[in-house]
Amino acid sequence: EWCEALHSFTAETSDDLSFKRGDRIQILERLDSDWCRGRLQDREGIFPAVFVRPCP
């Protein structure tokens, strides 16, 4: 499952995944309604679900 970043997100901890608006992120797991775990290029981490939308 893939999503597109609606806003940029800067990691606040070593577990977070930083990304820029427009990045396509592979969703690996939905942790709960607020957080997802994903992969961007060679990095993995968690990020807020409200920062992304599903890719068509």
Rank of each mutant, 00 (worst) to 15 (best):
Q26N: 03
D16M: 10
R24K: 15
I27H: 04
D15E: 13
R24H: 12
S8D: 15
L17N: 02
V50I: 10
I46A: 08
A5C: 05
S8P: 11
D32C: 05
P54C: 05
H7I: 14
K20S: 13
C3I: 04
E4T: 12
E29P: 02
E44K: 01
L28S: 06
D34W: 08
D23G: 00
I25R: 00
R43P: 03
S33G: 15
S33L: 06
D16E: 14
H7L: 10
Q26P: 00
P56A: 07
R24Q: 10
A49V: 11
Q41M: 10
C36G: 04
E12H: 13
E12Q: 15
V52L: 05
I46Y: 09
F51G: 06
C3K: 02
A11E: 04
C36N: 05
G45R: 02
E4G: 00
I25M: 03
Q41R: 13
E44A: 05
A49I: 09
A49T: 13
E12I: 14
K20L: 07
E4Y: 11
F47K: 08
E4V: 11
R37Q: 04
A11R: 06
I25P: 02
C36Q: 02
L6Q: 12
R24G: 01
P54W: 05
F47A: 00
G22A: 03
C55M: 14
G38A: 07
R39K: 14
H7S: 12
V50K: 15
E12F: 09
E44M: 09
L17R: 02
G38M: 04
S8F: 03
A5R: 00
S33N: 14
L31F: 10
Q41I: 06
A5T: 04
S18P: 08
R39M: 10
D34F: 11
G22V: 00
L28Y: 06
S14N: 14
Q26H: 11
A49S: 13
A11M: 06
V52E: 03
C3H: 12
D32V: 02
T10E: 13
R30P: 04
R53T: 14
E12A: 12
L31K: 12
I25C: 00
E29V: 09
T10R: 11
R37E: 03
V50Y: 13
P54H: 09
F47V: 05
T10G: 08
F9V: 08
S18T: 10
C55R: 07
C55G: 06
I46G: 07
T10N: 15
P54K: 12
W35H: 13
A5K: 00
C36A: 10
S14F: 09
H7F: 12
D15C: 10
R39Q: 08
I25G: 03
E12Y: 09
D32N: 11
R53H: 08
E4I: 13
R24I: 11
D23H: 01
L31M: 12
S33A: 09
E1Q: 09
S33Y: 12
R39Y: 04
D16K: 15
I27T: 01
R24S: 06
G45C: 02
L28H: 03
G22R: 02
R53K: 14
L17Y: 05
D34E: 14
V52A: 07
W2F: 15
H7E: 15
S14C: 10
H7V: 13
A11V: 02
D34Q: 15
F47I: 04
Q26R: 09
R43C: 12
D42W: 05
S14I: 10
S18H: 06
S8C: 11
L6S: 08
R30L: 06
T13L: 06
K20N: 08
F9P: 02
A5Y: 00
T13N: 14
C3Q: 01
R53A: 12
D16R: 15
D32G: 11
I46L: 12
D42F: 03
P48A: 00
L17S: 01
F9N: 11
R37D: 01
K20A: 09
C3F: 11
V52F: 00
W2T: 05
D34N: 14
E29W: 04
P54Y: 04
D42H: 10
D23T: 04
C3N: 09
F9I: 06
I46S: 08
A11L: 01
E44R: 03
D34I: 09
F9C: 11
I25K: 01
E44Q: 09
T13G: 14
C36I: 15
F47W: 01
F47L: 05
S18M: 04
R43M: 07
Q26A: 07
L40Q: 06
L40G: 04
L31S: 07
R39L: 10
A5V: 02
G45A: 04
E12L: 13
G45Y: 03
R53Y: 04
D15P: 03
L17H: 00
D34K: 10
L28W: 01
E44G: 03
R37I: 11
E44H: 06
F19S: 01
A49N: 11
E12C: 12
W35Q: 14
Q26I: 14
P48T: 00
F19E: 01
A11H: 04
I46P: 03
V52T: 10
Q41G: 15
H7G: 09
S18Y: 04
L31E: 03
D16A: 13
L31I: 13
L17C: 00
L6E: 05
V50A: 15
D34P: 05
D32L: 00
A11K: 04
I27Q: 00
A11I: 03
E4F: 08
D42K: 11
R24C: 11
Q41D: 15
L31D: 15
I25D: 03
T13I: 05
S14P: 14
E29K: 07
A5G: 05
S18W: 06
F51I: 13
R39T: 07
D16P: 03
E29N: 05
G22Q: 02
L17I: 03
F19K: 03
A11P: 09
F47H: 01
G38N: 02
R30E: 05
I27L: 13
P54F: 11
L28I: 13
I27A: 01
E1D: 15
P48C: 01
L28K: 01
E4N: 05
G38W: 01
R43D: 10
I25Y: 02
C36K: 06
I46M: 07
F19W: 01
F51R: 09
D15R: 13
S33E: 14
Q26S: 02
S8N: 15
D23A: 04
E12G: 13
S8K: 07
P54M: 12
D34S: 08
A49H: 06
T13C: 11
G22S: 02
P54V: 08
L40A: 09
L17P: 01
D42E: 12
F51K: 12
R24F: 11
D16N: 15
D23C: 00
S18F: 05
D32E: 10
E12M: 15
H7N: 13
D15Y: 11
L17T: 05
L40T: 09
A11C: 05
E12S: 14
R37P: 02
R43W: 04
S8I: 01
F19G: 02
Q41F: 11
W35K: 11
V52S: 03
F51T: 07
P54D: 13
C3L: 05
E4R: 04
D23W: 00
L6M: 07
K20H: 08
W2Q: 04
V50Q: 15
G45S: 00
R53E: 09
L28A: 03
S18K: 02
R39H: 01
V50C: 12
W35C: 09
R43V: 08
I25A: 00
T13D: 13
A49R: 10
